[in-house]
Simulated assay, not measured.
Amino acid sequence: MLTLVQYRSGVCNTANCRRKRECTKRHKKHSTTSCKSAPIPQAQLPTPVKVRPASTVAQEQDEKSETYTSLAPDERGQTMALLFFLQTLAVSTVAAQGRFVDLTHALDTNTVYWPGSPSFKFNILSRQQQDSFWYESNNFSTAEHGGTHIDSPSHFSKNQWRLHEIPLNNLIGPGVVIDISARAEKDPDTQVEIADLFQWEEKHGKIPEGAIVLMNSGWDKYWPNKTAVFGSSTPNNSSTFHFPGFSPRTARWIIANRKYINAIGVDTPSIDFGQSRDFQTHVTVFGANIVGLENVANLSRVPVTGATVFAIPVKIRDGSGGPLRIFAMINDVNRAGINHPEILCMMVTFISILLI
């Protein structure tokens, strides 16, 4: 904001004065005796503001002018405050555009585990009022591969990452949701095929680097009905299981052509489909240090593109897997076509700087 500042001392009465108009304080040709000022009415006087010329050149040019402009110190502070406000507003706006979807089934005594794994146990140690405060404490125990959980590459591949070795960068990435729910409704043995990935890329472009590719078969609607989740009336016999997964052909294509992804995930008990006997999808992707996510929930609430997925496990040293808290941040700015929300913040900051 710029302030117009004008200094006037009155009307010059000197006979040979070439300036028959107001005499400014900077009018050097007159002495105080020869320049008898007639006071200007109070209503015409501006509020005096001390002005600091921007440069010596500007000051010399201004000698021939009765008025000049500059940024007052108080207003400089106001402008900086405006800049900070606009930056904060930009960040807040981007954050407000995002909403979160929890993709995790809660761990409890109904949690579904692969046959042979011990069930979830939860023991209350304390849940009572103390002298001046309430106090709760519990013990729990769980197998690695049950409920919503992560498979470390070491689960099916020797010398690959164990749980504590997986970089955080590999647990966060753009969500790519492959929806096969219509097929799975009719055929529980259906699998994610290469054609499904081609179809997704035709609509949304190439699978992005660091992506977390998730199969949505609609299977989470069966949770925690163990018989329905495993697709078998004998849920303790894995040879009878029927549920969708990623086909080994698709896994090999991913390694050959999209090896840069971070993880694949499913809303079923295994990234291999239920009738698999050799778990070749596990073997293939884990051999490339690509992480597996199983029993993921609520994928029908996540758009096929435009979300960021966070898959954060408990950090268990030397673990082959473990409980997972996975969620998606759905950014409506991204869905509107702005792929990098930080660009919006930079634009607002740049415009703010121009106002100074």
Rank of each mutant, 00 (worst) to 15 (best):
I124A: 14
I124F: 03
I124H: 07
L125M: 11
S126R: 11
R127K: 14
R127G: 09
Q128L: 09
Q128S: 15
Q128H: 09
Q129H: 09
Q129R: 14
Q130N: 10
Q130I: 05
Q130Y: 01
S132G: 09
S132K: 13
S132D: 10
S132W: 03
S132F: 02
F133V: 14
Y135Q: 14
Y135W: 08
E136V: 11
E136Y: 02
S137E: 13
N138W: 03
N139G: 05
F140E: 09
F140S: 13
S141H: 08
S141N: 13
S141D: 08
T142Y: 04
A143V: 06
E144G: 04
E144I: 07
H145R: 12
H145Q: 07
H145N: 05
H145W: 01
G146T: 03
G146L: 02
G146D: 01
G147C: 05
G147W: 00
T148W: 00
T148L: 07
H149E: 02
H149M: 06
H149I: 06
H149K: 13
H149G: 02
I150R: 10
I150Q: 05
I150E: 00
I150D: 00
D151H: 09
S152M: 03
S152E: 01
P153V: 03
P153L: 04
P153Y: 00
S154P: 00
S154Y: 00
F156E: 05
F156W: 04
F156T: 12
F156Q: 11
S157V: 04
S157M: 07
N159W: 03
N159I: 05
Q160A: 09
W161I: 09
W161V: 10
W161T: 13
R162F: 01
H164D: 15
E165R: 13
E165N: 14
E165Q: 14
I166G: 10
I166P: 06
P167V: 15
P167F: 07
P167A: 15
P167R: 15
P167I: 14
